[in-house]
Design a protein around this nucleic acid. Structure first.
Lengths: 203, 203
DNA sequence: GATCATTTTAATCAAATGTTTAAAAAATTG
DNA sequence: CAATTTTTTAAACATTTGATTAAAATGATC
C-alpha cells in the first residue's frame, strides 16, 4: 500500500528535510515559510530540523546556494564559450535556459523575490561577474560599439526569463494555461535567436 | 527645527499609516512586514493601525489594489487606442511605462512577488483581460498571423519591465549603479520600439 | 462650558513561531 | 548482549506578532 502524499520515505532524514525545504521555500518564500510547514512536508518531527540544520536560516542559506548556482551557473559557461559565434551563443542560451526554466519554473521569481526582500544578504554573493565580463559581452561590443552591450544581455535574458516571471500573473488571470504556456516557450527557443540577431542589425 | 527622518507630521493619521504601509510593504513584502514596522514608520501608536484599517490584511489589500491599478492601469489604455498604429502604440508604451517604472522601480517585483507567494488570492483579480484582448493584439494578428501575438506582447512588456525586475540583482552584484541604470533605461525608450518593429519583420 | 463623540495611548492577550530540552527509541560497537 | 552513540520524540520555552481593551486625551456640539 502506498504512503500518504509525496512523503519520500526512502530518503535519509536529512535529505527528506532538504527536499521539503526546497518545495516550501520555493513556493512561499523565506518569510512566509514556517519551520512547522517544512517538518510536516518532510514527515518528520519538528525538532529534527534544528538537529540537522541548526536553524531555519541556515537551512535556507543551503537551499538558496543551490538555487543560485542553478540559476546563474548555467549562464556563464555558454556566454564564455570562446569557440561559439554570437548567433551560436544566443541559440545555445535560449535553448538550454528555456529547458532549465521549464523544469524549474519558479526558480527565477524565487531568487528575485528573496534578493528584493533582503538585498544586503546577497551583496557580492551573486555569481554575475562572469556574465558581465563574458566573451559574449566582448563580441557584442565589437559587433555594435554604438549600443551598450548590457542592453543585449538584458534582452537575451529577459526574452527567456521574463515569461516565467510573469507566469503566476498570466495564470491567475486565466489567459494562459499550463499547456499553452509550454507551447509558447517551446516556440521561443527558435524565435529568440532570430529576434536578437535582428536587433543586432537594427540601426 | 526639522523632525526626525521621514515622518509626515502634517498628514492625517489615516494617511500617515497608508503612506508608511506603502513603503514597508513595498520594501519587505506582506509576510516579512510586521504591523509594528508600519506603526513605527508612520510614527503612530500600534493600535491605531487596527482602529483605522481593522487588520494588517485589510490594510495590505488596500495598498495592493492601488499598486495593481498603477501597474496594470497604464497598459490597457495605450494598447487599446484604436487611432494609434502598432509603431505608435509600442513607442507610447515603452516611453510611458519606463517613466512610470523609473518613478516606481520596486512596483513590478512587489506585485510579482506577492502574486507568486499567494496566487489564489489574485485569481480573477488581475485586470489583464483588457490587455490580452486589446486592439494591439488584433493589430499583431493582422501583421504577423504566423506568430502567436502573445509573444510580441510578452516582448514589449519584458523589454521594458525585466530590467526593473533584475535591478536588485544587478545592484547587489555591483555591476550596475543607480546612475548607469537610469541611463540605460532612458536609452531603451527609443531602442525598444526599433527592436520590436524589427521583430515584426523578422521571418 | 458641560456633554458627547472621536481619537490616541499604554497595557495586555492569545496565538504563532523558532528553538531547546530531556527522555525514549533505534542503531552501532566491542 | 551490554554499553555507547546516534537519532527521534513529545513537551515546553521564550519571543514575536496581530489584535483587543479600557482608560485617557482631544475635539465637536449644543
Amino acid at each position: 500500500m502506498a504512503k500518504k502524499k509525496l512523503e519520500e520515505v526512502d530518503l535519509s532524514t536529512e535529505e527528506k528535510i532538504k527536499d521539503a525545504a526546497r518545495r516550501v521555500f520555493m513556493k512561499k518564500g523565506y518569510a512566509a515559510t514556517r519551520t512547522r510547514d517544512i517538518a510536516e512536508a518532510a514527515g518528520i518531527n519538528l525538532a529534527l530540523l534544528n538537529y540537522y540544520f541548526r536553524s531555519k536560516e541556515k537551512l535556507f542559506e543551503l537551499i538558496m546556494l543551490e538555487k543560485l548556482a542553478k540559476f546563474f551557473g548555467a549562464i556563464a559557461p555558454i556566454l564564455n564559450d570562446t569557440n561559439a559565434t554570437l548567433d551560436q551563443k544566443i541559440s545555445a542560451f535560449s535553448n538550454n535556459y528555456i529547458d532549465l526554466l521549464t523544469a524549474n519554473p519558479e526558480l527565477p521569481l524565487f531568487i528575485l523575490s528573496e534578493v528584493r526582500a533582503n538585498p544586503e544578504r546577497f551583496v557580492n554573493k551573486l555569481p554575475v561577474a562572469k556574465v558581465a565580463e563574458s566573451h559574449f559581452i566582448q563580441q557584442l561590443q565589437e559587433k555594435r560599439p554604438d549600443v551598450h552591450p548590457l542592453h543585449f544581455l538584458m534582452n537575451v535574458l529577459g526574452l527567456s526569463v521574463f515569461p516565467f516571471v510573469m507566469k503566476p500573473v498570466f495564470h491567475a488571470s486565466g489567459i494562459l494555461n499550463e499547456r499553452a504556456f509550454a507551447a509558447r516557450m517551446e516556440e521561443r527557443k527558435a524565435l529568440i535567436p532570430k529576434w536578437i540577431m535582428g536587433m543586432l542589425k537594427t540601426k
